[in-house]
Design a protein around this nucleic acid. Structure first.
Lengths: 359, 359
DNA sequence: CTTTAGCACTCCCATTTCCTGAGTGCTAAG
DNA sequence: CTTAGCACTCAGGAAATGGGAGTGCTAAAG
């Protein structure tokens, strides 16, 4: 059943007041905030209704109202006003993103820290590469016992490894090996590099010392790790300032949960590309997150990297501001990393997608 | 003044009891623990003396005794019994270290997590490379607009970068460039790569497109970042289980402090190679660590990497167990990474070095 | 049917009071 | 120097108290 306009106003007032104060909200406060032309008693009647419908609850009789997960959900989906970032905020984000040069994992960790700074909630990032294949293999001869393998992967990533061997080989052998690898190993997924392929290569090139398998081994290792997801978490300490985490035990549980990258990775799939997703309290799959909320924004870089950036906080979270900020960061990331490609559709526009529940 | 044997026994009993219980220790408890042939009253007299000398203090009259920083210091320097690791513990450490293959920063982060697991205190790691120079430069021609720079550094690290350019060049130019770079840029510290050197190289090789400065730029960037220290912190959440960090504010301050890698780096220099260093409470330079203790063990790998691994905890810390574990991990790290070189002197032996104060 | 004033009621929470017991310091005797 | 005895101290938990914010209900007014 659709709520009346007035009830929506009241619900919004309760949510926003509670987000600020963390205290149960009474009828009088609602009146001030919502600016309605009625008496507290009327508000109380409406509150009772919202309570009955499951949008609000009372910690105890004779206390004010607190939003339920359902209440937050409605707020996020319909009631929340879009928060515009100030110029200084957008400037700051853009500047920080642009000033960055360096490895992808460092970048993501820094972006996470930025999200923490901006929102004052713990931030997490997940990044994954789309499965790569090898485009080109070079072998650089150093001396009779050592050489460097240089792999060019799809997405223009370059990987290398220095190999020392206890026996000597010739520069010519390396040249032949690289020719064969470029002919037979490029474009292959990791599971296509079988031991059959390796032994036949060995025979073809006349390698009796196992150089082929050293190189093939590095190929496999590289392909496997290249698709591994990287995660980062920052700003966990900020939880401790929040009233809902004054209980050290509660804080401990959540921080501990966040400190395991497996748990972070598990948040993948909660979000599709191009939107901001809000998971409120019990909408979270993980038990440890059941009384917290997670806001996730996804980005996609041009070179096959895609990922999420998100924050974790109490259900009483400033969704509007957080979503706007994350959306802008993720958008900026897509723009920055996807340099050259067109900015993804919907960049800059805030689209919220909800949990699985009907609301 | 040297303490009498009995007082030492009593001090040890107080420290060890307090480490276990986190409660002020009374005369009766000391008696049980130290196993002396006297009455509680005698103990009390001795406690008064230890109190007067500054080794112990009372939270309030009519409470038991708690060690002071000075008391802990004496305990660590003289009274602490060396803790032997059980076989299963040493096995576990060795196994985990050996099972690792991968990048150095990942390894260090994992080692930190291991230290956290073993000690249940937050762990930190710092690793730094000794300043590198370039041993060899290779340029791999991909197509008329792109090539890969491959740098071999001292310490056998290899770095690479893929360069796309908006104009075209010939494979021959690359060949000449790499020859010149190998002739003029190898063995140079970063600050020796001046713009004079770059322009004269440009002239020598006939490069009018700025390829030289692209490559030189990558050289400089690589040399600069290669000496940068990496840090990791893990297990901060464990603080919250400790009675001394039940105050969320206190925990927040410390965790926040630990989350800034600058602060972690600042711990470098607190430790020399080959020993375990214990910094007790006020012995710490940083204000935020003044009522915590830090135990640091250093390691040195063969390839120019050196670093520290340490834990942070309350002054009431099981120094003996922590020092033994960290020492073993650091020793194992030296052994593992310094593969081939002789194990560093003193490996396996526990040598504690104290703070700056006389004790 | 909705709104509102009035009012009794509930119950959280901060404050105070009280009490217990562990542990002390002191004294005086062994 | 050691020890038994004893009065004293004080943290911290339990119980008691009071204030106040906010409620739900009723009945009258719109």
């Amino acid at each position: 059943m659709e709520l009346s306009e007035r009830r929506k106003k009241i619900l919004r007032a309760v949510v926003e007041e509670y987000i600020e104060s963390a205290e149960p909200v009474g009828s009088k406060t609602v009146l001030n905030r919502a600016g309605l032309n009625c008496s507290p008693a009327t508000i109380r009647n409406e509150l009772v209704a919202l309570d009955r419908e499951g949008y609000l609850e009372q910690p105890h009789t004779s206390a004010g109202r607190v939003p339920t997960a359902k209440g937050y959900r409605l707020y996020v989906n319909e009631l929340m006003r879009e928060r515009e970032l100030s110029d200084s905020e957008t400037d700051e984000i853009t500047r920080k993103l642009q000033s960055h040069s360096g490895r992808a994992d460092r970048l993501m960790a820094d972006v996470g820290r930025m999200a923490t700074e901006l929102t004052s909630y713990p931030a997490l990032t997940i990044s994954a590469m789309s499965p790569a294949t090898v485009k080109r293999v070079d072998l650089i001869y150093l001396d009779a016992n050592s050489f460097i393998i240089v792999l060019l992967l799809t997405g223009d990533t370059v990987k290398n490894k220095l190999v020392h061997l206890p026996f000597s080989f010739t520069e010519d052998l390396l040249r032949r090996l690289s020719a064969v690898f470029n002919a037979s190993f490029t474009g292959l997924m990791e599971e296509k590099i079988t031991s059959d392929l390796i032994t036949s290569t060995e025979r073809a090139v006349g390698d009796s010392m196992g150089l082929t398998s050293v190189i093939a081994g590095f190929l496999i290792e590289t392909l496997m790790t290249s698709k591994g997801a990287g995660t980062s978490v920052s700003g966990e300490a900020n939880l401790l300032k929040l009233p809902e985490f004054q209980d050290p035990d509660k804080a401990h549980r959540l921080i501990n949960y966040l400190s395991d990258s497996q748990n972070i990775s598990a948040l993948t799939g909660s979000s599709d590309f191009g939107d901001v997703k809000v998971l409120i309290g019990p909408e979270n799959a993980a038990l440890e997150l059941r009384d917290s909320s997670v806001v996730l924004a996804s980005f996609e870089a041009g070179d096959g990297m895609r990922g999420l950036i998100g924050v974790v906080g109490p259900t009483r979270m400033d969704y509007s501001a957080v979503a706007a900020k994350l959306s802008y960061i993720a958008g900026g990331l897509s723009r920055l990393l996807g340099a050259g490609s067109a900015p993804p559709a919907g960049f800059g526009k805030l689209m919220i997608k909800g949990g699985d529940k009907d609301v």
